[in-house]
Simulated scan of single mutants.
Amino acid sequence: MKQALLIIDVQPCFSPPQWQVAQIARLARTMHSVATVERHDEAVTPFWRQLGWKPAAADDPLVPADRVFVKHGDLPQRELVGHLRSAGIERVLVCGLQEDTCCLAAGFMLFGAGLHPTLLTWLTVGSSLDRSANLGASLRRRHFGAGNVLHGAEEL
């Protein structure tokens, strides 16, 4: 099964841990990689109006990737799925920030498109609600199957 790495929102405004950036960058060099970067556009997603918080207006990924998709909100752009399909990708290894929101939303989108979203738990951090990302991993196991949650590089 051909696979790619999807790096979710590893960007300066979210202050990812340095160990995470370094380990994801190391893995990204070994396969096709795609990154999302969240940017603020209040006309698209009302972060400020509803939450009193907003991501940066112009942030770039901290991990170099073969392709970068800008998003406004939790879901990646639909073009991401088209890109993965055109590359013949079936399994998408998901890592990054906010497992219980943005990473999980990407998982649902990929699953709904017939792809196999697979969480890399050791390269993922949860939201401030659950920094361990255990909540998101539990939801992912329930919705996509236990085989779609990996706990170490040896499982790749």
Score class of each variant (00 low, 15 high):
residue 115 L to N: 04
residue 90 E to M: 14
residue 44 V to L: 13
residue 71 K to D: 07
residue 57 A to Y: 12
residue 109 M to V: 10
residue 110 L to V: 07
residue 147 G to E: 13
residue 133 A to M: 12
residue 18 Q to W: 01
residue 135 L to W: 14
residue 116 H to I: 13
residue 84 L to I: 10
residue 24 I to F: 00
residue 10 V to N: 02
residue 126 G to H: 03
residue 22 A to I: 01
residue 14 F to Q: 06
residue 63 V to N: 00
residue 50 Q to V: 03
residue 72 H to W: 15
residue 41 D to T: 05
residue 130 D to E: 09
residue 117 P to R: 01
residue 55 P to S: 08
residue 82 G to E: 15
residue 24 I to V: 06
residue 21 V to K: 00
residue 87 A to V: 14
residue 21 V to E: 01
residue 64 P to N: 09
residue 75 L to A: 12
residue 132 S to H: 09
residue 35 A to E: 02
residue 29 R to Y: 06
residue 44 V to Y: 08
residue 12 P to L: 06
residue 6 L to C: 07
residue 4 A to M: 11
residue 141 R to K: 15
residue 141 R to G: 13
residue 67 R to T: 09
residue 133 A to P: 06
residue 117 P to Q: 03
residue 80 L to S: 03
residue 50 Q to G: 05
residue 12 P to Q: 10
residue 58 A to P: 00
residue 43 A to R: 12
residue 120 L to M: 11
residue 146 A to T: 15
residue 48 W to V: 10
residue 95 C to V: 02
residue 81 V to L: 08
residue 14 F to S: 04
residue 65 A to P: 13
residue 1 M to F: 12
residue 47 F to T: 11
residue 103 C to N: 04
residue 108 F to M: 13
residue 13 C to N: 09
residue 16 P to Q: 00
residue 113 A to L: 08
residue 28 A to M: 00
residue 70 V to F: 11
residue 127 S to N: 12
residue 87 A to L: 15
residue 129 L to Y: 10
residue 77 Q to R: 04
residue 109 M to Y: 04
residue 80 L to G: 01
residue 128 S to V: 06
residue 12 P to W: 07
residue 153 A to V: 14
residue 97 L to W: 03
residue 31 M to E: 13
residue 44 V to D: 07
residue 148 N to D: 12
residue 139 L to F: 11
residue 39 R to E: 11
residue 142 R to Y: 15
residue 58 A to K: 07
residue 18 Q to G: 07
residue 148 N to K: 13
residue 151 H to L: 14
residue 114 G to H: 04
residue 92 V to F: 03
residue 148 N to Y: 11
residue 154 E to V: 14
residue 25 A to N: 02
residue 128 S to M: 05
residue 130 D to V: 09
residue 15 S to E: 09
residue 108 F to S: 08
residue 107 G to S: 10
residue 113 A to T: 08
